[in-house]
Design a binder for these strands. Structure first.
Lengths: 406, 406
DNA sequence: CGGTTTTTCTCGACAGTCGAGAAAATATTT
DNA sequence: AAATATTTTCTCGACTGTCGAGAAAAACCG
């Protein structure tokens, strides 16, 4: 929506983008609606839709909604086949590849097991390229029809470049997807943390209803993720994934999977709950993987009144509450959406969380935050992929770089 | 530099702003320089400078720098008298009023004692209005020649509205400067935390030399302030003043002046150092005011090897180190400029700070941050006022709202 | 005093937005 | 069935703005 350049062409690109993104987000709109939505003059909208139609980016809807009197409206809609995006979700045990069209429809999807053990980043790169090629081929798409490749993982991401800095999956071996895909795929490459995508999806969902200035997405599981969506000065969503899970909770505290002591994750991650509940010394090296059934057992004990089990979840909640209060001291108050496989244990953590939050300056000044439990993290991550990548595609299509008539 | 509107007029305003702000920041530039700086075509620059000159915003420099061959350059510069800003700095004991012209020159300045005790916000408002009127009158300025009023205080500020939410001076009594000045003064009202202004000033200083993506300004004193300057997506500085001093350091820790327990300030503020050094119980209600000479004495003792004095500063450093590590977990690594009256004790805190920082995940991943001790906090705050307000005035003058020919 | 050089200024072409009114296509009324 | 009303889309001319190229200006140099 914002342009930096100074020429009338840039103005047109900017206005084209307004029209196109309004059209894509709202489905099908008539000339009149577009004027109202974008604030552009009727003549300008005519000029822009004419060009977008000529370039094969939008089309007229056939089925005319017969309504009241007057000349019937002609509805425009984006062409579904004018560009595609590939969404790749990297989990600890598998990689999911999805192909989505410009209307946001899922076209194809498959999973592959994640190859190799630790440090097998080279092999992973090769299987990644092969899978992407397969994804395009199965739908008979040329590579230049895929306009964006959106990749997600848990871990720390370099926001500028598409570079994975640290992840529970690959450890500290930096993985540069831009370099990996550059030259082979002409698409724009996006890389994001999973929690960032969840925040993005929730922000997009709430776009219409009321003006929420910010929202946090907290993901509970073996590791702890936090995504932030905030509106910037210009009213646009600015999403980020701060390194919340490894923010220090207590100096010299429990040993974390990352090797440091006292991280939030070392109190609120699954392995931490397990460690506390079984009274394993807190400096014990954490379990690599904890089946969720184990945590379910501890939760059942806690609900039955078992003291150490209750304490384990309470302590997890306290570390989250203190961490969130610290985060909001810096970013301001905001509602918190809770997701992830650990959501089902949140009831056991909530009291500790709110208690720890309430005793901070942030809690005393602004009260405890609104907590929104949200099921379906997988869908939210996918929605986040789609939201981000489609917005990127809007820009490409509006500025005439890539895509267009098939 | 960014436009949101869609019309050719907005384009012109945008380009005018590029020209004007380049001119103001660099002093005096010729037509050719402006083309190079802004990237605009020569003809466009001619058109814009002609209008700005006609409107009395810029003028031709008389003194021509006789140079080599060729037609001599004509240098443009902003007119000093085309608009003024008032900078108001509210301290605990006094209020400083400054009048600055569009060239950034200090025209007039006076201090007034801050009236009334706690809760005397009403009386303060009246004296504030009277002092502003006096400031304009002493320089024989009409009110509409003052384009911006920039106000600073320690404490928490509502970034959108010019509303002081909490301050050590007024406590929780919210003070709405927009409402106070609206109607009486046509100027734009800006309100900022002092540390934010320091960060803004340092960011502006480093603007030229190298591309620093972010910088933090840490102010040490009776209270602890943090200002952040980060570049956003569009490469512009985004400054903020997170509530760092009252971020929780230790749950259930020492009593803070704000009434909560365990805030960073309750370990690193002057009163905290005093309390620890004299082994006063940490839940004792903090002293309202500590003469800096007291801290100097403790520092002397520490340098002489007195154990509790050393520990007091060390503990302060540790709370700062842990807090900065938490901050950088969320915002990313950045250099830290240290200012404030407590800077002279920083040598005694530094070891504890770096030690606490190094043991966090942030410290292990990215190393300890670059620390830049900076003397002259007062000047930096003033520079921040001027930088911010002048940038605001650029926009007003370029869009033709207010200011211009006297 | 006429070339050279550098800078500023000017002109016409081109791109874009806008407001107003014409044209189109339907429902309703006579 | 024709005329009228209504709503929407399309088109035209005016205006604003940017740009490239070349003309004009103003110095220095030989």
């Amino acid at each position: 929506m914002l342009i930096r350049s100074s020429t009338p062409e840039a103005l047109r690109q900017n206005n084209s983008l307004s029209v196109l993104s309004a059209l894509r987000r709202q489905g099908a709109l008539a000339h009149t609606d577009l004027c109202a939505q974008t604030g552009l003059a009727s003549a300008t909208v005519s000029a822009i839709t004419a060009i977008l139609e000529r370039d094969g980016v939008i089309e007229r809807l056939e089925q005319k909604p017969a309504g009241g009197r007057g000349r019937p409206r002609v509805l425009f809609q984006p062409k579904r086949d004018c560009g595609y995006l590939a969404a790749v979700r990297i989990s600890s045990d598998q990689v999911q590849y999805s192909l989505v069209d410009y209307a946001g429809r899922l076209i194809d999807r498959f999973e592959e097991p994640r190859l190799g053990g630790d440090g097998a980043t080279e092999a992973f790169g090769q299987s990644f390229l092969a899978a992407l090629a397969r994804l395009a081929e199965r739908s008979r798409l040329a590579r230049d029809q895929v306009l964006a490749i959106s990749i997600s993982s848990k871990g720390i991401v370099d926001p500028g470049a598409a570079r994975l800095v640290w992840s529970p999956v690959f450890g500290g071996a930096a993985l540069d997807f831009s370099a990996l895909l550059g030259g082979v795929w002409p698409a724009r490459v996006l890389l994001a943390n999973e929690s960032l995508l969840v925040a993005q999806a929730i922000a997009a969902q709430r776009e219409g209803q009321g003006h929420i200035p910010a929202i946090a997405a907290l993901s509970l599981g073996h590791s702890i993720g936090l995504g932030l969506a905030r509106r910037d000065r210009h009213g646009e969503w600015e999403v980020s994934a701060p390194n919340f899970g490894h923010m220090q909770h207590v100096a010299g505290g429990s040993l974390c999977r990352c090797g440091s002591q006292g991280c939030v994750e070392a109190y609120a991650g699954f392995y931490a709950v397990l460690r506390t509940a079984f009274q394993v010394p807190p400096q014990t090296i954490p379990a690599k993987f904890v089946p969720i059934a184990e945590i379910d057992k501890i939760a059942a004990q806690a609900r039955a009144g078992h003291r150490m089990a209750i304490y384990a979840f309470r302590q997890a909640g306290q570390s989250l509450g203190a961490g969130l209060a610290r985060m909001m001291s810096l970013f301001g108050s905001m509602p918190v959406a809770v997701t992830g496989p650990g959501l089902r244990f949140f009831g056991l953590m909530q009291e500790g969380l709110l208690e720890a939050f309430a005793e901070t300056h942030e809690g005393r000044l602004n009260g405890v935050p609104l907590i929104l439990p949200m099921t379906g993290e997988d869908e939210l991550v996918f929605e986040g992929h789609v939201t981000r990548a489609l917005a990127e595609m809007d820009v490409m299509l509006a500025t005439g770089q890539g895509g267009g008539a098939p």
